[in-house]
């Protein structure tokens, strides 16, 4: 199912955590803990970053000279480093933001494969499409509901998912309308 948990995970996976943490540092130096909080609040929603992820990312950025340690505060527990972005870090964020994301190609469709196989084996391909539409609508209802009760961030995240599901459905309707021709083409 395409709930927001799954969806947020996809968004986070697609974007680079290190570039995002770096970008958050541009507005001023922060402790690792502050960075995690800012990330979770803006992008993590109900799927927060692990501390381990933050510290391993920061040590990599440190090694590459994209951040520096501005201060170390002693205290109980682990030492608290305040990180600051370097000029090289700012350039890196800028380059990342300016580089367009590669669009998904969507050329591997399990649904297409199922439809063709159904036609080849003389099963009812229309049924497969109907059941898929229903499953998509079920996910869309959950997202719509969430959007109606959510804040702007929720709305934007859900809309992103809804538009993609809608695109699948438009393809599905088009395919349903061309099933007879597709059957001729694949069974010839």
């Amino acid at each position: 199912m395409y709930t927001r948990d799954v969806y947020t995970l996809c968004i986070v996976a697609l974007m680079s955590i290190s570039h995002t943490l770096l970008g958050l540092l541009e507005s001023g130096p922060r402790h690792g803990y502050d960075l995690k909080r800012a990330f979770d609040e803006k992008f993590g929603h109900d799927r927060p970053l692990h501390y381990g992820q933050v510290y391993s990312t920061m040590s990599r950025l440190l090694k590459n000279g994209l951040v520096e340690v501005e201060a170390i505060e002693a205290g109980d527990g682990p030492e608290r480093k305040r990180y600051a972005i370097t000029d090289a870090g700012v350039t890196d964020v800028e380059r990342w933001l300016a580089t367009p994301q590669k669009p998904e190609e969507y050329l591997q469709s399990a649904l297409y494969t199922k439809v063709v196989l159904a036609l080849l084996t003389h099963r009812n391909a229309g049924d497969i499409l109907d059941v898929q539409r229903s499953e998509h609508l079920r996910s869309m209802r959950i997202l719509t509901d969430r959007k109606r009760n959510g804040d702007l961030a929720d709305q934007l995240i859900c809309d992103h998912a809804l538009f993609h599901l809608e695109a699948d459905l438009r393809w599905l309707e088009l395919t349903a309308a061309r099933l007879d021709r597709l059957r001729e083409a694949v069974t010839r």
Binding site: R133, L137, M140, R141, T144, L162, L165, E166, L169
Partner: peptide
């Protein structure tokens, strides 16, 4: 579909 997602269920 986006309009239909305001429904409780659908018939085709």
């Amino acid at each position: 579909a986006r309009v239909a997602s305001y429904s409780d269920r659908e018939i085709v």
